[in-house]
């Protein structure tokens, strides 16, 4: 699974599962800490639709941590202030890069994908209850 996808699923639906995975497997994979979890900023670059140009709309708070196994670096980057989750995500990133615990991770992600699908369906259904159904007076 692409990192774009698994980071989204864990970030939105799998904080608890990420922490559980980290605590279960962290002793089974040696790693050094490059940087402890720390807060920082990501500047959001955006495309506007009037002239199709780019601009910076502002910064968002993130927590970042980095770990290393040999020359492979695991990056943990999460929204807001959340040290534990950042550490867990760094470990998961390292695991994916080293192709370790892949079956376990995929099993977790498959469960989370179902949760995501249900959540999107529920949110969509709720929002659509506010969709206007126009009726012409002379129909």
């Amino acid at each position: 699974m692409h990192r774009k996808q698994w980071t989204r699923i864990f970030a939105k639906y799998g904080r608890t599962e990420a922490l559980d995975f980290y605590n279960r497997y962290k002793e089974e994979l040696e790693f050094d800490i490059i940087s402890e979890p720390d807060e920082g900023l990501v500047m959001v670059k955006t495309r506007e639709h009037a002239r199709n140009t780019l601009f910076y709309m502002g910064e968002v708070l993130v927590t970042e941590s980095k770990i290393r196994h040999g020359s492979t670096v695991g990056l943990g980057l999460v929204k807001g202030s959340d040290e534990e989750f950042s550490e867990a995500m760094a470990f998961i990133d390292l695991s994916f890069k080293l192709e370790k615990f892949t079956a376990e991770l995929n099993e977790i992600l498959n469960t989370l994908k179902n949760i995501e699908a249900n959540d999107v369906a529920e949110r969509t259904e709720k929002i659509l209850q506010t969709k206007v159904s126009f009726e012409m007076m002379n129909d």
Binding site: E39, G40, L41, V42, M43, V44, K45, T46, R47, H49, L54, E59, L61, V62, E64, L77, R123, I127, T130, F134
Partner: peptide, 30 residues
């Protein structure tokens, strides 16, 4: 904010990917 390091710049975000929770047009009914 001024005490925090800027770690990254995002990739280009495009509101066409926004999960829309509200969307109205005052110009077109349909």
């Amino acid at each position: 904010r001024s005490t925090l390091p800027r770690l990254y710049y995002s990739t280009v975000t495009d509101t066409r990917e926004m999960f829309v929770e509200r969307r109205v047009s005052a110009s077109f009914k349909d």
